Simulated scan of single mutants.
Amino acid sequence: MCFMKELMVRAVYCEMLGYEASFSYIHAIKLAQQGTALDKRVGYLAVSLFLNESHELLLLLVNTVLKDLQSTNLIEVCMALTVVGQVFPKDMIPAILPMVEEKLNHPKEIIRRKAVLALYKFYLIAPNQVQHIHSKFRKALCDKDPGVMSASLHIYLEMKPESYKDLVVSFVTILKQVVGGKLPIDFNYHSVPAPWLQIQLLRILSLLGKNDRR
């Protein structure tokens, strides 16, 4: 299995150089399905790089993702949520949506953040299937972890501003906290408090303020 992991890394490198390594795709899925945590991690990484949402081989990974989402191992849950948020086919969303929503209440912030990003991806590829998740994003906007909060902002750049006009005060409050240096120092970039988060909030506020002078 360790040997296969090394071969998979080389296959990823070949594809990065522009050479097709489609013969290795099935082995990437097998690696994600079994082996140690590190083996699975390499397998999941290869799958996310090799395959797209419409690839037929993804169906072979569905049961593995469902199993890993129920795992007590945080690394396995993280890997499964990452793949779900990157390449999961939209026709399989109904089967996995309840589990992803459940992860929004997870005690670990990294799990909540990845769950928010997965739901955002679902909204992009199949908005009609996830109309009810808007309330989930409103809750995530108030999450005590800044990473989860910032992840929840993405969807507001895609929605119609009229549907969340009542959140103006929340966005302004968050922006004031960011500019005031209230976030952990990890969010700073060259001594500037979370510049990308500031830009994202300003973009959202510009959408809300368009054609609305008040």
Rank of each mutant, 00 (worst) to 15 (best):
A28W: 00
F50L: 03
H154Q: 12
E15D: 00
R41W: 05
L208K: 04
L167T: 11
I185G: 05
M8L: 14
L31I: 05
P127Q: 05
M149W: 06
D68A: 02
A11C: 12
L104R: 01
R112T: 05
E101P: 05
L57I: 06
N211C: 11
Y19C: 05
M92H: 15
G147F: 01
E76P: 03
A21Y: 04
L66W: 06
I29S: 08
L45K: 15
E162N: 08
P161C: 09
M149Y: 02
L17P: 00
M92G: 00
T82W: 10
H134M: 15
V9D: 15
L49V: 05
V169A: 10
G147I: 01
L74V: 08
D143Y: 01
F23D: 14
G180D: 01
I125S: 07
V168I: 12
F187M: 06
H106I: 03
T82V: 10
I174H: 06
E162Q: 12
L7M: 14
P107K: 02
P127L: 02
L119R: 06
E162L: 04
A140M: 08
R214D: 09
G209W: 07
P98F: 03
K165E: 05
F122C: 01
K5S: 12
L49Q: 07
I93E: 00
A21L: 04
K144G: 14
R213T: 07
T82Y: 10
L153V: 04
Y44L: 13
G18R: 07
M4S: 10
A151T: 05
L60P: 00
S54K: 13
Y164L: 05
L81T: 00
G35M: 05
Q200F: 03
I125M: 15
K144H: 09
V100D: 01
L81R: 06
M1P: 03
A118I: 01
I75N: 05
V42K: 15
A28K: 00
I111E: 11
V65L: 14
Q86M: 11
S150M: 10
H154A: 13
Y19T: 15
E6D: 14
A95I: 11
R214Q: 08
D166I: 02
R203K: 09
A37C: 12
K136M: 04
A194N: 10
A118E: 00
L17G: 00
K182A: 12
A194P: 08
E102L: 13
S54L: 05
V84L: 10
M99D: 04
Q70D: 14
K144R: 13
Y189W: 08
L167W: 13
M16Q: 12
I199A: 13
A32I: 02
M8A: 14
F171H: 06
L17F: 05
E102P: 00
R138C: 13
P146Q: 03
V47C: 15
K165V: 07
Q131I: 05
Q198T: 04
P195A: 01
M4D: 08
L153H: 06
Y120L: 07
F50D: 10
L17T: 07
E101A: 01
I133K: 09
I199Q: 13
Q198L: 02
Y25N: 03
R41G: 12
K160L: 15
E56K: 11
L124Y: 06
I29H: 07
L141V: 02
E56G: 03
L57W: 04
R213P: 01
Q200A: 07
A32Y: 09
G43F: 04
P146H: 01
V169M: 11
Y120C: 09
M16V: 10
M4G: 00
